[in-house]
Every structure is written in structure tokens, then in C-alpha cells.
């Protein structure tokens, strides 16, 4: 690592001030991407602002048809939450399948979505449920939040505070994990609610995306058979040593079917 100043704010406003006043400050959440990258000297920061002590960013609440999760809530906390499991079981299921126990005990929802890794699980849930991302200055719809590979709608110095998920009638997540990293080669999140059906795909492309054709078919008939014959084009999909674009396109259909089955369809 290159040298940096370590800062440990105890409130959101203190964190925001520190970020604002630093030359090149970086927020530290779970650190699973940031710290390895810094260790490899591929990233550096003047100040590392650790949000671990900001208690107002943690916690889970369910009210008014919404599940709200603080940005610094760990994957393990979401996975173990009976409130989440009762309201949106698929969300707890997704959190419980991220990485491994070490990752889940340190990684956070805010850190994950701010990083916008194309293979991360959470973006599928946020877009697949039509969530809202709250920051210290505004609210952003999930559909507008993920703007590309490792890119989001967040402004410089903006801090995610919490994510609100509307509770659907049914939802399911099915993931094909990278055998090495356990990130999603393809993950498909499907939900059905009074607002309609959402199908969100992570891992396959540069950023999470929805599959309109599947959504329409499922709105018509919410069953695995409805999506079995629908495939996405592999033109813009990722390709690496683990999976070709063609294989990813195939897996989108398979994972969509299985997600619908998990959602009871």
C-alpha cells in the first residue's frame, strides 16, 4: 500500500466533512475490493475514511411496505435477518450466497453497490426489486443508479446512507457463481408485484440490466416456462477464462427459469 491517513468518523456528517476536505479521500466500507486493490498498489488515497464507526449507517427496518437496509449493514446481517427473510426471502437468500463467510461478515450493501462490480450480486436485487438508494443528499432509483462497469450515478463526495426495497408479492434469485471467486458469472433476480414484473441480470454484462422480453412474458404468465424460450443476445456480454459471452447468454435463460421457480412460478 501507499501511505495514507486513516480517519475514523463517528457520524455521517463527520464522514462527509472529512471526505469533502480531503485531497483524494476514499470511503472504506467492507473493503473487499478497495483494500486488495490498494495492497496491489493499483489504488491509492490521501485519506481512508472508515465508515465502520458510523452507527447510523447500520441496521435493518421493515415498515410501510419497504425493507430499508443501512449502507454499512453486512451481508451476514441481511442473510440472518428474520425481518428480511419474512418480507423478501429472496433478498436474504442473495445476501447469504455472496462470497464466503469471511466476505459476508465484513462486506456491506453500501460498499457493494457503490463499487458497481459487474459481477456483484446486490445490483440484481436492487434493480430486480426497483429499490431506491438514499444518499446524504438525495434519493436515486436503482434503474438510474448503475451507470456502467464500476460506475454509478453517485456524485463525488456523495455517501450512500441506506437502500429501500419495496416488498414484492414474489421474488427469487438464482446465481451461477464463478467457481474461483464466487462472484456471479450470471445472476438473475426476478420479482412480481402490483407494479409489474422485473427481471434483472448481473454478471453477464458490463453492468446490471433488465430483460424486457422476459418481464413481458412473465407479466403474462408467471412461470418458468414463460422465459425458457427467451434468450438474450450475447453481443455485449462479458467473456473471460471462466465463461464465454455465448455461455453467459445461455445461463441468463437458465438462471431466469430457476429464479422464477424460486419465486413460486
Amino acid at each position: 500500500m501507499y501511505a495514507f491517513d486513516y480517519k475514523s468518523p463517528s457520524s455521517l456528517s463527520e464522514a462527509a466533512d472529512m471526505l469533502q476536505s480531503s485531497d483524494d479521500g476514499v470511503l472504506l466500507a467492507g473493503g473487499h475490493t478497495l483494500l486488495p486493490t490498494m495492497k496491489q498498489r493499483l489504488a491509492s488515497a490521501s485519506d481512508l475514511i472508515d465508515l465502520g464507526g458510523v452507527s447510523e449507517l447500520r441496521g435493518i427496518s421493515v415498515s410501510g411496505g419497504q425493507v430499508t437496509i443501512g449502507a454499512m449493514t453486512t451481508h451476514a446481517e441481511v442473510a440472518a435477518s428474520s425481518e428480511v427473510a419474512n418480507a423478501i426471502a429472496a433478498l436474504a437468500d442473495l445476501a447469504g450466497g455472496i462470497g464466503d463467510p469471511q466476505v459476508r461478515n465484513a462486506g456491506t450493501i453500501g460498499g457493494s453497490i457503490a463499487n458497481s462490480d459487474p459481477s456483484a450480486d446486490y445490483p440484481a436485487a436492487l434493480v430486480g426489486l426497483g429499490a431506491t438508494i438514499n444518499t446524504n443528499s438525495r434519493s436515486i432509483a436503482a434503474d438510474d443508479f448503475f451507470t456502467g462497469m464500476f460506475d454509478t450515478a453517485l456524485d463525488e463526495n456523495e455517501i450512500i446512507t441506506q437502500v429501500s426495497f419495496p416488498i414484492p408479492d414474489a421474488a427469487g434469485y438464482s446465481k451461477f457463481p464463478n467457481p474461483a471467486s464466487r462472484y456471479a458469472v450470471v445472476g438473475v433476480f426476478v420479482s412480481r408485484s402490483s407494479d409489474g414484473v422485473r427481471v434483472a441480470v448481473t454478471g453477464a454484462g458490463p453492468s446490471v440490466f433488465r430483460v424486457a422480453e422476459m418481464e413481458a412474458a412473465l407479466a403474462d404468465s408467471f412461470s418458468a416456462a414463460s422465459v425458457a424460450g427467451i434468450s438474450v443476445s450475447d453481443d455485449d456480454l462479458n467473456s473471460d477464462i471462466h465463461a464465454s459471452a455465448e455461455y453467459r447468454a445461455h445461463l441468463v435463460t437458465v438462471m431466469a427459469k430457476r429464479a422464477v421457480q424460486k419465486a413460486g412460478g
Binding site: N178, P179, A180, S181, Y183, D240, I241, H242
Partner: peptide, 28 residues
């Protein structure tokens, strides 16, 4: 089932970390 050291045509090791080199886990 899992492990392969992959080089590209330029001799760069593509599977140079646990993100890409699959060590067997208990669940495998």
C-alpha cells in the same frame, strides 16, 4: 474439475490470483 494455470498469447498469467485460479473448497 477446477484448476488451470492460463496464460494469454503474450505470456501473461490470467489466473494469477484466487479470483481466477480455482482452489478446491470443502463444498466442491
Amino acid at each position: 474439475l477446477l484448476e488451470a494455470a492460463c496464460y494469454d498469447d503474450n505470456g501473461q498469467l490470467l489466473s494469477g490470483s484466487y479470483m481466477d485460479y480455482t482452489m478446491p473448497r470443502a463444498a466442491d
